[in-house]
Design a protein around this nucleic acid. Structure first.
Lengths: 210, 210
DNA sequence: GCAATAAGCGGGGTAAAGTCCGCTTGCGGT
DNA sequence: ACCGCAAGCGGACTTTACCCCGCTTATTGC
């Protein structure tokens, strides 16, 4: 019985996928992300190179898959863990908590996250839409009076993940850790200012450019 | 006559640098960024491959240099052009104008900007610090009451450039343009909310996570 | 001019990503 | 149990970024 036209993944394929993921984790632990090559991975796993590329379409795809694994656990904490990261706290508090947790998450997986960036693919790290969707929902719950919550969510995702994915050096310099703590505080400030109610005063302030 | 211990760039080197930049511009115009290879560029410029790598340390370095060129002109407009992008307008208005102009700038050079991202180097697009420094200065002038303007500037740079550098597909899909306009509006909203004065009311709102 | 020298130059060599295509094999149907 | 076949597999092949190192040439002091 096949289900809905979609053939299930073959047993050997599933086995090899797991084998490859385990192997790549070992290689990263031993020698770092930089040293992982497709040939090396294939050989170490006792498989052909074609197999590796079939499973993960590119080198970046491997790290993407690796990140997806961890991302699932993270998502679990967000969706059903204790507040303020999980449900039960006020939206603004959850936004702050999410940012802090996300910064930490990405920092701990920094090398992998950067390796998951693909020069030819738009979406970078493991289902980056996770952040975007979650921010989108919480912003909505916060009852912000803004015309376009979606775009704001995109932008805040950039504010949250951009610095780590783009500007951080890949063997982190010693003072990077301090930067991170400051980024987390700064995120909290940004969110709280964004969400706080308007001053009752009625002087209009505007900026424009064509 | 040599100046200050630093040997000036040799005449032939400078000529070749310019030749290479022109050649790469031609190649991009004819066939797109993707089709630019180091061998092809060297051959077309009538130079050796080693020369190309000596001038721009990597493939990304070429596009970085290309972007730097344009960036200089952009910086000119920011430092001494007409307001609100140039000096003379209120800081908040300039922040808004800068964001709009920067989004447009990056969008127009999207393919090059993405090609300038280097998997092994932290700093991405042509002197990305330009945005960071400028935002930093304007935030200071806006007289924000925040403890750490530097981190905020880093984060806003991410908000501004991250979406374009990370999430936008490289042959832009048709509806990407609409996204861009929305991003610009959203940027304005973000800045204005961030900079507006606090409501006088004293109800504290806070969020925390360890 | 001329020698000394350091920078620039060239192109063959290496390594690693990604492609191709014929062979093999698990799987579902009978 | 057997058959047909779509999916999986492997590894040679191609492409391309990047390295190396001996040769060439612009520059500077005499």
């Amino acid at each position: 019985m096949k289900l809905g036209g979609e053939r299930a993944e073959r047993a050997d394929a599933a086995r090899n996928r797991q084998l490859l993921l385990n192997t790549v984790r070992e290689m990263i632990a031993e020698a770092g992300v930089e040293q992982v090559t497709m040939d090396g991975l294939a050989e170490r796993a006792g498989l052909g190179k074609g197999t590796v590329f079939r499973r993960f379409r590119s080198r970046a795809g491997i790290f993407h898959a690796l990140l997806d694994d961890d991302e699932r656990a993270f998502q679990e904490r967000v969706l059903s863990g204790p507040p303020p990261l999980g449900p039960g706290a006020a939206p603004v508090a959850r936004l702050v908590a999410y940012g802090r947790a996300r910064i930490r998450f990405l920092l701990e997986r920094h090398a992998v996250a950067r390796a998951a960036l693909d020069r030819n693919q738009p979406i970078p790290a493991g289902e980056s839409t996770l952040s975007q969707i979650h921010l989108r929902v919480l912003l909505g719950q916060a009852g912000l009076d803004v015309p376009d919550v979606d775009s704001l969510a995109v932008q805040l995702t950039g504010a949250l993940e951009g610095p780590i994915l783009l500007y951080l050096s890949v063997p982190p310099r010693t003072d990077d850790a301090r930067h991170i703590a400051r980024l987390a505080d700064s995120w909290q400030l940004l969110i709280e200012r964004l969400c706080r109610p308007a001053a009752p005063e009625r002087k209009g302030q505007a900026g424009q450019e064509g």
